[in-house]
Amino acid sequence: MGEQRGRPLIVATAVMVAAVFAVTGRIIGFDRALRLISGPGVGETWFDHPVYTIAESAVVLVLVFAHAWRTPVLVAVPSVVALVLVTEHAAFYRPHISLSRADAVQLMLILSIIMAAGGLLLRMRERSRAALAAAAEERARRDERLDMARELHDVVAHHVTGMLVQAQAALVVAAQDKDKACEMLPGIVEGGTDALGAMSAMVRTLRDNGAATATTDLAADLHRLAQRSGLPVRTNVELTADVRPELGRSVLRIVQEALTNARKHALGATSVEVDVRLTSSVVLLSVVDNGRPGPQHSGGFGLVGMRERVHELGGRFFAGATGEGWLVTAELPLEVRT
């Protein structure tokens, strides 16, 4: 594209350089023009008319501007130099009516510098815009990768953790009661089936560029999530109005991750309370357990993912020990952050 765009300018520059020198030779004589000897003109010609001189200078300056703006550097530099040299040659050796030779040379040099600077300014501006656009595109890709990583972690960690807990329990009781251990196998199979289904749903969502939503009935999904968590969960959901699906998905994922963390790290937990309430401007949610925080309860990617998800929505997030267990709270605004 750059070469094709520069070819007409190269041709025009070559023609203009030849034309300016030819006119100079026509006015003062080719012998003087080639030997760089100044003197009177060889005869009166219409090329001496100020209108032609102005038009010729304007075309040269436009070409200088165009090269500084558009053509590749290896083409722009010799083209601009050739145009300036042939124009300065003409300004010095041609006779002028209203300007001295020195004034004509200085004027054309100043105008050429101004036009070249203007073209370079536009070139730099376009490059800056292209760099900003590339940075924005890369930032969008990075955000998309982070979102995909969080979604993958939320889905896989929730289901696989449940399967792991049941498998570990089956191993513990297998030595004393194999029948009871076998009774736990259907739960593990169900957890694996749910994991595959969730993964398929997530892949469909990503393939559709996020058009699909994770929840259309947030209250029902929250109750279902609590029932399947394998924890003694008590839920309190107060939603007096519909929540937009994208926000509902974030609420569901945060509660899901909080329950997953409670199942993995809340040692000896006998109670987990999930509270989700809707106010006029925000969704308030909290998940609190009464277990003893395990060695990894204060960190991990799960907390990082929840915090990032909340901050992207312009909300506030807290997670930490309460003295009697572990608390996760979030405040998510109803309006989309701009």
Rank of each mutant, 00 (worst) to 15 (best):
R123L: 06
E138C: 02
A321M: 13
A157Y: 05
V51M: 06
L132V: 10
N209K: 08
T53E: 02
T24D: 09
R316I: 07
L152Y: 08
A22R: 00
F30N: 14
D179R: 10
P245S: 09
L34C: 08
V274D: 06
Q256Y: 06
D289E: 04
L334V: 04
R263W: 00
H311A: 14
L247G: 06
L303Y: 05
A174C: 02
L120F: 00
V274S: 04
A211I: 08
R150H: 12
V105M: 15
R129G: 11
A220R: 13
G315Y: 07
A266S: 05
V255Y: 13
T13Q: 05
A33G: 11
V243P: 14
R125K: 12
V304Y: 00
M202H: 09
V15A: 15
D147P: 03
L63V: 00
D208A: 15
G268F: 07
A330C: 11
F301Q: 00
A90P: 09
L63N: 00
A169K: 04
L121V: 05
R35V: 10
M16E: 12
H159C: 07
V156I: 15
A170V: 00
A321N: 14
G325L: 10
E126M: 10
I188L: 01
H311P: 02
M115G: 02
G6A: 08
V237N: 10
A262S: 15
